[in-house]
């Protein structure tokens, strides 16, 4: 697979480390009433989508950026690649 890095252009997927579902960006509030349950779901429960899925890839053998890659788990086709930083900020993180 080729991942079209937003800064570096097309790169071999073997340069990356795969973390998993991009929902891992959305860390729960540790002070919330239901924090224990929320962290259990965050840590252990996955949608495990068959089809287009947003996922986190880390460019370890490159610029060490985290990317959000939209990839179809049925065909391995990649349709979008974004910097995870931009995605997280768009969701209201680290403002």
């Amino acid at each position: 697979m080729i991942i079209d890095h937003p800064l570096l252009g097309p790169r071999d997927a073997a340069e990356f480390i795969y973390l998993g579902d991009a929902c891992l960006i959305d860390r729960p509030d540790w002070q919330a009433e239901d924090a224990a349950d929320a962290y259990h779901d965050y840590g252990y429960i996955r949608d495990n989508i068959a089809g287009p899925m947003q996922e986190l890839w880390y460019h370890e053998q490159g610029d060490r950026s985290w990317l959000v890659v939209t990839r179809d788990t049925l065909t391995h086709e990649i349709t979008a690649v974004e910097l995870a930083r931009d995605v997280a900020r768009a969701r209201g993180r680290s403002k």
Partner: peptide, 13 residues
């Protein structure tokens, strides 16, 4: 292969 997949086929690396 290391990434989520339902494709029943992998890649060359």
């Amino acid at each position: 292969d290391g990434y989520n997949s339902y494709a029943q086929r992998g890649n060359l690396p």
